[in-house]
Design a protein around this nucleic acid. Structure first.
Lengths: 141, 141
DNA sequence: TTTTTTATAGAAAACAATTATCGAGTAGTT
DNA sequence: AACTACTCGATAATTGTTTTCTATAAAAAA
């Protein structure tokens, strides 16, 4: 993993720094789709001098070299995902958590849209919203 | 149309004001999915004292009474749509315009996701991005 | 219609997410 | 070890959005 990001950075003329590795490692080992602030908060314990600006700048680079994708699930901040396969996401409107939607084949649907529009489709994002199992349980009590 | 919005506002205890009618009329007569600033700019000629805050507050109300939906096509601002049917949108990554995707039946896909997740799905937003016909033509010159 | 009540418009300030600036420091190269 | 260029992080700046406050306009009451 680190070999991968290390060489990807170097090949593009970016330097390999502890902050960048830490940010990418944190992101690739969580399924919480954190935003910049969540990443910043989590890393502050280990890297007390970490700055939010560094998180943003690093995300910009990681996006550029294709290691993260940016999510925009209708909130006021962007979330980040180190899983690069394009899958739908679902956000709980009560607790705010964002999860992956697994086992869904989107190709047929994407193809249908691609053929039905005059746009040259380059990508897509599917966002569902609803109530997560935990909040459903809370509500029924 | 105006009868509709007028009574919808009154029934909920909101007052019917020229600004609110103007904002809704402008939105419902365009397909450009404008953001707050675009709405503000367009109305400034006719309503010179119009304020951006009024646009935002009005959109909040219109969303609440179910007359507009909020779009978030991966940009840094929200767009608004007076068409309430839930259809996919496509954004041109070059010129930035956002258009509707017509003639696509999303029900089957939505159902598949609904059944494959433990969430209680309440809604969804599908965003595609690519290059619009106009920009494609520009590029090939 | 006139009066009274209550919500609203709009200016300005506050806020929050993100980006830009810049000097000190560090990674990678020689 | 020394050099060079990139990066970090503090701070300021920007941008989209929300809040506050008060004169005023809309709805209700008289």
């Amino acid at each position: 993993m680190e070999v991968c990001i290390t060489s990807l950075l170097r090949d593009r003329g970016f330097k390999v720094t502890p902050q960048r590795l830490a940010i990418y490692n944190m992101l690739s080992s969580t399924k919480s789709h954190p935003n910049a602030e969540m990443i910043f908060n989590e890393l502050q314990a280990m890297y007390p001098t970490m700055s939010l600006a560094t998180v943003y700048k690093t995300m910009e680079i990681l996006k550029e070299i294709g290691l993260v994708q940016v999510l925009n699930a209708g909130e006021d901040s962007f979330r980040y995902d180190a899983v690069m396969t394009n899958h739908p996401h679902v956000r709980c409107t009560e607790c705010g958590q964002v999860e992956d939607v697994y086992d869904i084949n989107i190709d047929a649907f994407v193809n249908e849209v691609s053929q039905g529009t005059k746009y040259q489709i380059m990508g897509q994002q599917f966002y569902f919203h609803g109530i997560c199992p935990t909040c459903q349980r809370k509500n029924s009590n």
